[in-house]
Design a protein around this nucleic acid. Structure first.
Lengths: 161, 161
DNA sequence: ACGTCAGATGGCATAATCTGCCAACCCTGA
DNA sequence: TCAGGGTTGGCAGATTATGCCATCTGACGT
């Protein structure tokens, strides 16, 4: 897990990164086959990529809709006073809400954060907002956009030399 | 891959979903151990979850920063004429750009889509915008917010019923 | 041109894991 | 109490992962 890395990826490493971003559970044998290397060096490279911190981890993608989360919204938050304590507190509180899938601090004259949230329906949205987000100290404005259709999500990072 | 599912998840299934969202490459043996079941039924359940479509797939998380993508932006797009053809064409063109990590059709008086993009720097941003996004037919307005800090991303979907 | 050497590869043996099968078990309802 | 469906646990064979070592490749200096 060493963040600083000279970062010299040859074709093999690039192919590995591309493939495991698409098929995170591919076996080392098939991976090796697809990149045109034998299993031994392939596994060594994969492990090296993991150790280097370039591969942060593996996730299963779960269909939120099937779990009952039928509503996705982008919530823009503005804070009244821009002190580090306020920000830290906000981030901590928001991280404790499982419905908040993502939290980005962004630029914008009227906005400080964008949250991506998943809730069952409008009721859940209202509850989350009024009971858990608006009450956080320093939150002065909230504006939401609802997601009509996720055209695509969770795309892999492009890996080109 | 059958989207329609009565969806009755007991504690075991819930634990499986939680764990593989955190450790997508966990071995079946360890998974079984952690949920308190022997490997056989654990693997059967996992396969059933995959077959049911609840598990959409597995991904490796790659550190975009280490790959040189130091700038992340949220780009809001407005379209001039809201015809299905325009939308379909826009989505197709945008899907062909590897820097576009996410594309959501959203509500908003002035906005139709939000894109999440990753580029190396401001130069890359400018190029992407001027050469590939603005020219798409129907795009009438573009407004961007830059991500100052990704507080957190890629969280698992909560599975609680 | 030649030899040296570090780094990477491929193959092999062993260990670990996956996978399919079957008997045993636990509910539930009659 | 007695079926019967559904689920579990264990086992054997197949597949995969892992560590080790000899070999190969390419860069460098002589």
């Amino acid at each position: 897990m060493k963040p600083p890395q000279p970062l010299s990826l040859d074709r093999y490493d690039q192919r590995i990164l591309e493939l495991i971003q698409q098929e995170g559970r591919i076996s080392n044998q098939e991976l090796a086959e697809r990149i045109g290397l034998s299993p031994s060096p392939c596994l060594r490279r994969l492990r090296a990529l993991e150790e280097s911190g370039l591969i942060l981890g593996y996730r299963a993608l779960v269909d939120a809709r099937q779990l009952g989360y039928r509503l996705m919204a982008l919530v823009h938050i503005s804070m009244d006073r821009h002190t580090p304590e306020r920000f830290a507190n906000f981030e901590r509180q928001v991280a404790a809400l499982p419905q908040v899938q993502e939290c980005l601090m962004i630029t914008g004259q009227e906005v400080d954060y964008q949250l991506k949230i998943r809730v069952e329906d409008m009721d859940g949205y209202q509850q989350l907002l009024l009971q858990h987000i608006t009450p956080i100290e320093g939150v002065s404005g909230v504006h939401s956009n609802f997601v009509l259709r996720p055209v695509f999500e969770n795309r892999g990072v492009p890996v080109a030399p």
